[in-house]
Nucleic acid binder design. Structure first.
Lengths: 257, 257
DNA sequence: CGTGCCAGGTGCCAT
DNA sequence: ATGGCACTTGGCACG
């Protein structure tokens, strides 16, 4: 499972190690030690000499971590080429990609450890509580939004974007539903209003189009703007324990009952 | 620099190792091997048994990586508690936080390697080309947006959000400028329109308020909506090579000349 | 704290 | 490739 490990490798050994294991594309490679990092692309950055952890995964993705924080200090989601070479008696790692043209360069001043790991066995991964799941549940049970609602489309594309749920209510009025898995903000209200306008533009002039924002909660400014625009809010939770955690008796049926 | 390393540790040894080194808060801890991972919080997930790399940084942040991709499979940006314990002859890692209430649980079925690294030396980090930098440059050189422009405020807060640059033009008209460091989208147009409306609402009824979207480029739909709404686009680049890379002679002075 | 918004956002999926 | 958008977004700044 440990393919290879080097302690305090020489620049040449490290470059060999990196080139060999990143090219084989079958193991996760990391180097820890004193280094300098520069990046140039959509933005540009420089990291002074410090101790960092460089990780290159099988797919060529690169991340460079400093001691704290969830996000890497520098990274490269996809690389067109990863190359190590020795220059002026230090090992350098160059990770580049086109489109956008970006380059991350690591200068290993004092590499302490290099490690190649096989992470061979892949396991299935399932995420629940996404907006996609919410959408599916509500498409199958539109009564959770409102009695008598009939869903006509999911992800209906209009000029201004995609409408999560397009429906008609018990009175035959068209309804645009915008879903949010988390607290709805002004951004969601903007989206909903845009979609309602788009739909109104496509229907006969007098047609009434309702807009419903369906989310577990909504920010106060969003609620105000929503009401100003004559749009509606409907509370729906993305996960079962979300309502349970709220403490009180569930005010409405959970999507997961 | 390698504080400690274990190969194929027993559940007890691994639990000790994790508890000791995560509590000391002075090194980066990782475990690689066969494991199962579950997460419950804002959403919920399960990862079947597979080979993963678990990383706990000094600040208690947790990330669990699968063999590919820049993003961790599971993570926890901040943890209120990280604890390892042996249960039914396997080592389990529990990382929890409140607000939001979230729990990541790792069951180490076959830990292959555990490693504690000191990343002691911190180096300075500088990022260039951010929107904040753009804003500063344009506030100091508003003529890059338009001759005769005078900036009144930066980050002026109005009801609907913060206006990047608030200015008056050569004719004395008020100007709302929205900046984007990358290609501007419909979202940016919505923002700009909201801010212009807010400003119009605060000024005497007949006051003309211009809205300018300043960005290196703009999507076609955004451009259409911008023009529909009577707003304007101004090309500005966030980085010097952005215009240079564009190839032709620079159509306007770079922010970095 | 909530609210808003940038980010080298990344990733997914549509045309 | 362009475009729109969700994301356990994360992160910061500000009322």
């Amino acid at each position: 499972m440990i393919r290879q490990q080097l302690l305090m490798p020489s620049p040449e050994d490290l470059a060999d190690f990196l080139n060999r294991h990143t090219r084989s594309r079958d193991c996760l490679v990391q180097v820890a030690g004193l280094a300098e990092v520069t990046y140039q692309g959509r933005a540009a950055s420089t990291a002074d000499v410090g101790t960092y952890l460089v990780v290159v995964k099988q797919d060529g993705s690169l991340q460079i971590h400093h001691p704290t924080g969830i996000k890497p200090m520098n990274w490269q989601p996809k690389t067109d080429s990863i190359t190590a070479r020795v220059d002026e008696d230090v090992c350098m790692l160059l990770a580049s990609r086109r489109s956008p043209e970006e380059l991350v360069q690591v200068v290993f001043l004092e590499p302490q450890m290099a490690l190649a790991l096989e992470l061979a066995q892949a396991g299935g991964f399932v995420l629940r509580g996404s907006e996609a799941e919410m959408q599916q549940t509500l498409a199958e049970h539109p009564e959770l939004i409102e009695p008598g609602l009939r869903v006509l489309n999911r992800e209906l594309m209009v000029e201004s974007g995609g409408i999560d749920l397009y429906a008609r209510d018990a009175q035959g009025r068209y309804v645009v539903v915008e879903l949010k898995r988390g607290r709805a903000t002004q951004h969601a209200v903007s989206q909903l209003a845009r979609y309602v306008r788009s739909v109104e533009g496509k229907l006969p002039a007098k047609a009434v189009v309702r807009g419903i924002l369906a989310a577990p909660s909504i920010t106060t400014p969003a609620r105000l703007e929503l009401e100003n625009r004559g749009l509606e809010f409907r509370e729906v939770s993305a996960l079962p324990q979300a309502t349970a955690a709220a403490g009180g008796p569930v005010a409405q049926p959970s999507l997961f009952d």
